[in-house]
């Protein structure tokens, strides 16, 4: 057999070990889903901690969640859902070979992600001012429950890990914008846009659960 990379008629973006573009695309997407499985179980550990402590201290969760502002939590939920919509639109643009639309939608998504982080920043600093820190650094007196710090340790771990994912998502999408401007993507090849989209939707799904579990208890 001759060198497989010399096979004629394969587009440039297809690696020599794939039969065709579709196979490469499906393999990348499946790989991303395997990664998302590990992400679900990664966050799953924190959700398990949440559930165990909620079963032990149900009153604590009722009292402590009043410190969280439902309004800003709801705004952030809407912001993330909006960004999921624009990511889906950016994939659609790529599929239709509309590179300008792809870049515009990515910019809107990045802006919405930044809005999310700014709101989160103000939520965090507001709590820090009151002395609401995780674990042993907790000094706030406003909640009449001796285990009040536990709720906020869980709150900071879950929203913090989620926030790190949002920041990574912003980085990934900036990278996509740079690549798209160089003309790397087309209707034939947009795999990085597709799998970044999958990642971003999962970050949205995690927040969809964090919002009622942390903000809406009462």
């Amino acid at each position: 057999m001759s060198d497989p990379s010399a096979v004629k008629g394969k587009p440039k973006h297809v690696k020599h070990y794939f039969v065709d573009s579709d196979q490469q695309f499906e393999a990348s997407k499946m790989g991303m889903w395997v990664f998302l499985v590990t992400e679900i179980l990664f966050f799953g550990g924190l959700f398990a901690a949440y559930i165990v402590y909620r079963s032990w201290y149900p009153d604590l969760y009722l009292q402590a969640s009043t410190e969280l502002d439902t309004f800003w939590g709801a705004v952030n939920t809407a912001v993330l859902i909006g960004s999921s919509l624009t990511v889906a639109m950016s994939i659609r643009s790529a599929q239709l070979n509309q590179i300008k639309g792809l870049i515009t939608n990515l910019y809107i998504t990045i802006s919405l992600a930044c809005v999310f982080m700014v709101i989160k920043f103000f939520e965090y600093t507001h709590k820090f001012d009151k002395g609401i820190f995780p674990g042993e650094y907790y000094t706030y007196e406003g909640i009449a429950h001796e285990k009040a710090n536990i709720f906020f340790s869980i709150y900071y771990m879950m929203t913090g890990l989620h926030g790190i994912h949002v920041i990574i998502g912003i980085g990934l999408m900036l990278f996509l914008v740079v690549k798209a401007k160089k003309g790397a993507f087309s209707a034939e090849y947009y795999t990085p846009v597709e799998i970044t989209g999958l990642y971003w939707h999962l970050v949205d799904v995690i927040w969809i659960f964090l919002f009622p579990l942390l903000y809406l208890i009462d």
Binding site: S84, G197, L198, H201, L202, I208
Partner: peptide
């Protein structure tokens, strides 16, 4: 329900 909608139709 929201998560299922995202997973089925956005993902």
């Amino acid at each position: 329900a929201k998560a299922m909608i995202v997973v089925a139709f956005f993902m």
